[in-house]
Nucleic acid binder design. Structure first.
Lengths: 157, 157
DNA sequence: TCTTCGCACCAAATAATATTTTGTGGTTCA
DNA sequence: TGAACCACAAAATATTATTTGGTGCGAAGA
């Protein structure tokens, strides 16, 4: 039996705050939501245990670590059958530079997000690892020129 | 003068660990990288101050908070001039459901990532907020059917 | 080569923070 | 009405972060 969780206004506020800043102390968080530390912590733990909060991550400045190029890649497979899809996703999973892989509607089948040092490294990566995945029919790269928004805060309904 | 930062193997390991799990304690982190807590903390602080670590975020389970639909949207503007681009990015910035906005090469001009409760909410959002941005010429929605990879860990070169 | 400086580190003390415990009031349901 | 259950607050305790002082090593200059 899955425990049905309903979020009240305070829970939603907690989620909003922790998405924006996971490093806030429990005391500060308590203060912001207008409760004392004990029940605040209880709520956070409950959100974690229930799986509503999945994980916590540090976000890096990609340029500063030497990752200057990000792209989206639209991929079509040779066939849409389960075997090919599994072969593809498995191959993708082994490539660290592919940080996202989504199955989508529309003309293509998949959209990937890929990170690389520069265009040269990107080209090398594509040629050596991505292009020669057997089941891939066709690919189109969209290079990100600049990013205007990259929010880590989902709008909780 | 920007302080040129060079990362050694230990720094890269720290970044890798904190990207995967920002909630690790300093003592645990120290243990994993084979240093004592003091210099470990020093390194982390240095990475934060230098801006290599940008921020820390909680990641949610979108389905569990009632956000069942994610899409990519390819957008073409009526003209590629600076004025139109600024008008567009500003309009986009006010829509919480648009969590990413990138300027890209290729036939379209922008790619957006949008989150909504369900298809009905998505349609409403598009009709009421996105479609009628004045400078938008053409849009194509790609609905995410499933996500096979969504890594928060960048491969540091 | 010798000396000195500065850096990265460790161990241990201290400060801050998380977490647990205990008790209270309000709400629901039999 | 009253029993059981929550959600909460205050305060005690445990855990963790942070600071301090001291050591050794490597690089730069005499």
């Amino acid at each position: 039996m899955k425990p049905k969780i309903k979020l009240d206004k305070i829970d939603r506020r907690i989620l909003e705050i922790l998405q924006a800043n996971a490093k806030i102390t429990n005391a500060q968080l308590a203060n912001e939501i207008g409760l004392s530390p004990a029940p605040t912590l209880e709520r956070v733990k409950k959100l974690e245990v229930s799986g509503i909060i999945k994980s916590y991550h540090a976000t890096l400045n990609n340029e500063k670590v030497g990752l200057g190029v990000s792209t989206f890649v639209m991929v079509s497979l040779k066939g849409h059958n389960k075997t090919n899809i599994e072969a593809f996703t498995q191959a993708i999973n082994e490539i660290d530079e592919v940080i996202e892989c989504h199955h989508i509607t529309g003309s293509g089948d998949f959209i990937l997000k890929i990170i690389a040092q520069d265009i040269a490294a990107y080209q090398k990566l594509m040629l050596e690892k991505v292009t020669n995945i057997e089941v891939v029919d066709n690919m189109q790269s969209l290079v990100i020129l600049s990013t205007f928004k990259d929010s880590k805060v989902m709008p909780i309904p």
